[in-house]
Nucleic acid binder design. Structure first.
Lengths: 244, 244
DNA sequence: CGAGTATTTGATGCAGTTCAACGCTCGTGG
DNA sequence: CCACGAGCGTTGAACTGCATCAAATACTCG
């Protein structure tokens, strides 16, 4: 059992991706933090329709947010990266409206839902940050909806890969132009609203065009500018955001 | 120029759809409110990429949230109804990430962005409610993404109509089974990721199946249960939510 | 090595797009 | 008062991007 990381030594907080806050405020988050949890790849962390007693921030590892329709179809809503705050929905709306699953082993900072309100009330700057995080998530979902609604398969794939790689870069997860991508093609298919077969063929097309290739759990981007241009998106990576 | 509605007499606040708050808290919202604004149908209220000095709550009228891609494609992200809080994104993230347009004449309660922080800090219950609203919006976008990504044209249309009508009912906007729908077919097409032509044909199919018919700016739902079943969604209408 | 899971490839079919044309309504101006 | 045009809705016909079906090839782990 490894010792929990103290918040002031948090490796994420050092990154430019996250806005810095005064030491005293880091202490407040540290007090709010109840512990750490380690889960194996494949674990269901939160389930749609349940009311969970804890909220988490991802410290390490990657996962998936998804919703299911009764007949089994599944929509992957977002990819979960370090720094993501998960379980907020259940805190605000009574129950989770989507599920979260670990795609790799993950380490999660655990917060008790029962202490959420006093933390929120007593630390208005952090409350503001939590609202900010909700706005960031809303923004992402708007972009994803636009992709799935308006772009064709090749554009969608280029968009998704560019988004993922830019996020991973901002988190320092990439080595050279190699970016870890611990998902299955079915996951990407479910994220983009494509069939598995067509997802595979679309990936082959990106490879043929020398834009990006994916194998052995890692993406190699050969031409980020080309990807971004193909997807008709702006190049700039993720904007700084708060970390709880 | 009509007199602004005092918040304690707000017709929306009386509805079951909105959670009730103590009178003192209504006063706080009243103090935060800077005035009212009336806009004509067709007005651009907020523009993607801009930084606007005001935040609004919709008092009357309906509109559209949408994003555009450079080449002109447009994704309608949500329909704007009375009680919706708009402009929060620009407050949290510096600029709007989507545009908002009035589809009918609208009345908006105006709040000054410059006073947002002190309101948020001094009224933690309202701050919580604002986060809640962001979570509601996030939830909706997750559902919309699932629809566009996983459902076929007929299911999507059934889903959209059911969603809109259930919302309108909760707001007391419907008369019998008639529900006002002040949008163009192109708007619905852009919301569902369908072409205009196919949207029209899909509406015709719903009419043939005696589920719902749309003409003269109003929807008649003949079989809500059938719509809900076709869309594979749950019947329950919108859950209570806060009103700022 | 064998069973189960994931990726790849080819062939066929259809849901939805695109193109084209027509009708309806309403506002505008001669 | 009617002619005209613009905007929106409707419908038919042809085309295509993606889904579906089917099967072979890799990869993983007991």
């Amino acid at each position: 059992m490894p010792t929990p990381t103290p918040c002031h030594a948090c490796p994420l907080r050092r990154l430019d991706l996250f806005v810095t806050i005064p030491d005293g405020e880091v202490d407040a988050i540290q007090d709010f933090k109840a512990g750490e949890m380690h889960v194996e790849a494949g674990t269901q962390i939160l389930m749609e329709g349940t009311r969970n007693p804890q909220i988490y921030t991802v410290l390490r590892g990657m996962g998936l947010r998804y919703k299911t329709i009764e007949d089994g179809r599944r929509q992957v809503i977002n990819f979960v990266f370090p720094g993501d705050f998960i379980g907020l929905q259940s805190t605000m709306m009574g129950e989770m409206k989507h599920s979260i699953e670990a795609s790799t082993a993950m380490t999660l900072c655990v917060f008790e839902r029962g202490e959420f309100w006093s933390f929120f009330r007593d630390h208005p700057e952090r409350a503001f940050d939590i609202t900010w995080l909700a706005a960031v998530q809303e923004h992402f979902l708007g972009e994803a909806l636009t992709s799935v609604g308006q772009r064709n398969a090749l554009e969608r794939m280029a968009w998704a890969i560019a988004k993922i790689v830019l996020r991973a870069q901002a988190l320092g997860l990439t080595a050279g132009n190699r970016c870890p991508l611990p998902y299955k093609q079915q996951d990407i298919a479910d994220a983009l609203g494509l069939s598995l077969v067509h997802t595979n063929k679309t990936l082959a097309k990106l490879r043929d065009r020398q834009l990006a290739s994916w194998s052995n759990g890692a993406i190699q981007v050969h031409d980020m500018e080309g990807l971004v241009k193909l997807a008709k998106m702006d190049l700039h990576g993720p904007e700084p955001r708060p970390l709880i």
